[in-house]
Design a protein around this nucleic acid. Structure first.
Lengths: 180, 180
DNA sequence: GGTAACATGTAAGATGTTACATGATTTT
DNA sequence: AAAATCATGTAACATCTTACATGTTACC
């Protein structure tokens, strides 16, 4: 069985929603997957094209008056199959963490203690902003369609973000105290 | 001020330890930074070379009998400065998460509930293995040199891993329950 | 005799980011 | 008049992974 990259799977998943153009996909990701998955136009457009050549999607060009043309993408049966097969596959990586704060902290004996403290303080503030974003995402999901069978799963991913971010904030506080 | 990539900063940091060759660096990272920073030989060797051409390190070739030649790298004053400047800089990204489990979960209405449960169960098991690794890393740090001024910071990074992983495990348990 | 540990490296390919390019309409 | 929104895309570059290539010694 052929394998595709993660970007492809993300696109296949999003196409099961009513999200059809590159532009819409980018927006949806920025609004609801952004906390655990990012994607740029430089990935979206070439990969959408590839979906079509691989037979995973079809495309229809729609002219709109007053607005630019839209290229609407639709999953094929094969595309849906590939998505479901991927879901059923075991995980490849658990987490692909690359944490810049921890990298800096690891070498922090080479800087004064107060500099390390402000590093952690800054990090804590960013994490608190993240918590605020989660609130905004939750509201967006609820406004969108809370009865949708998708919504339940989306809220689970949010809960993950909240719990782990909260744990990280607590770690920040504890570590700032220890450094004092 | 010129900027370098993260791999370069990681190498500069490691060269402040008594870790001098590409091989040793790889080992150290696999043993103690691995939970938040990974690196491959394909990054290490070319980047070490670049450190020298950029004037951040010098290299001495040592012949050993019975063993292959070692190329030992040493930080220059400029190298130490670049490291310290980077430590003092504000963070570029908070976290660069790309979480495959969450990506799958986000689209999990396209698979049966029991498949999603086993996805989470598998994830939970992997997280528990991670907790075990933290224990092993802690022992390694304590055996190495617990009095070292570095060790304190290393333990902080470990604590981060433990706290956030524990939170993730709790989330797994709660979410598996909810899906039932 | 085989494998693990020691040791250095390259080449190809996959993947991702950033900046640029275009252009209409709508809102401020 | 300027900026934001809608909409599509590319090219250059940065970065990372994987597989391959090479060779010795020590241990089982």
């Amino acid at each position: 069985m052929k394998t595709y990259n993660h970007t492809t799977y993300a696109l296949l998943g999003i196409l099961t929603l009513d999200c059809r153009t590159g532009y819409e996909i980018k927006q949806l990701i920025d609004q609801s997957l952004n906390h655990f998955w990012k994607i740029s136009y430089g990935q979206i457009y070439p990969n959408l094209k590839k979906l079509v050549t691989d037979g995973l999607a079809t495309v229809k060009v729609k002219s709109q008056d007053g607005k630019p043309d839209r290229k609407e993408y639709f999953l094929t049966t094969k595309g849906k199959e590939v998505l479901q097969n991927w879901l059923a596959e075991p995980l490849q990586q658990i987490t692909d963490e690359r944490n810049e704060v921890l990298l800096k902290l690891f070498f922090s004996r080479h800087q004064p203690a107060d500099q390390t403290q402000s590093l952690l303080l800054h990090y804590k503030e960013e994490l608190q902003k993240k918590i605020d974003t989660y609130k905004a995402i939750e509201e967006m999901i609820m406004n969108w369609n809370p009865q949708s069978p998708d919504a339940t799963y989306w809220l689970y991913t949010l809960d993950y973000g909240r719990r782990t971010t909260r744990a990280a904030i607590e770690w920040c506080e504890a570590t700032i105290e220890k450094i004092k």
